[in-house]
């Protein structure tokens, strides 16, 4: 009790909504939802992509991506996939990197890098789909 009394915050104020990491529920649920979504979203585009790549190469792949349905599948895979990957890497970093400075720097690189790569992949897919 003594340690609590030394702070001006009430015990309730300290406890309310504050786990050991002060956050995490949305992250945990997000990780599960994206993993569920990725079962079809990774299987369909990735498997079809490899099939088209091996049976006809450049032309076949581009033909396949001309369909808005294929392009949507690839873009959804990129968006949900990078979100899931960034979330997963974040947990790994938080588990093993304890220096606050290195931790925030790495997390920034992961999050911004994922966003940039997802955007680049999406734009490349759109470019092929629109035939530009």
């Amino acid at each position: 009790m003594k340690s609590v009394m030394r702070s001006l915050r009430s015990p309730l104020g300290r406890v309310r909504g504050l786990g050991s990491a002060h956050a995490g529920t949305e992250h945990w649920i997000g990780q599960r939802l994206t993993s569920l979504a990725l079962i079809p979203l990774s299987l369909y585009p990735v498997v079809t992509f490899f099939l088209a790549a091996n049976h006809g190469g450049y032309g076949a792949l581009r033909d396949w991506l001309h369909s808005p349905i294929s392009a949507t599948a690839v873009i959804l895979f990129l968006l949900v996939g990078f979100h899931h990957a960034a979330n997963g890497l974040q947990v790994v970093i938080e588990d093993y990197v304890h220096c606050e400075c290195a931790k925030s720097a790495t997390l920034f690189v992961i999050k911004f890098g994922s966003l940039a790569l997802a955007l680049a992949g999406t734009l490349a897919t759109l470019k092929i789909m629109l035939g530009a």
Binding site: V46, Y58, L61, R62, L65, V74, L78, G81, F82, A85, A86, G88, L89, V92, L117, A118, A120, G121, A124, T125, K127, I128
Partner: peptide
């Protein structure tokens, strides 16, 4: 494997960029 797959995603993006 999760870390490995996360490292594979940029290669997939590179593939898409070259395909474009």
């Amino acid at each position: 494997t999760g870390i490995g797959l996360a490292l594979g995603l940029p290669v997939f993006v590179l593939w898409l960029l070259l395909l474009a």
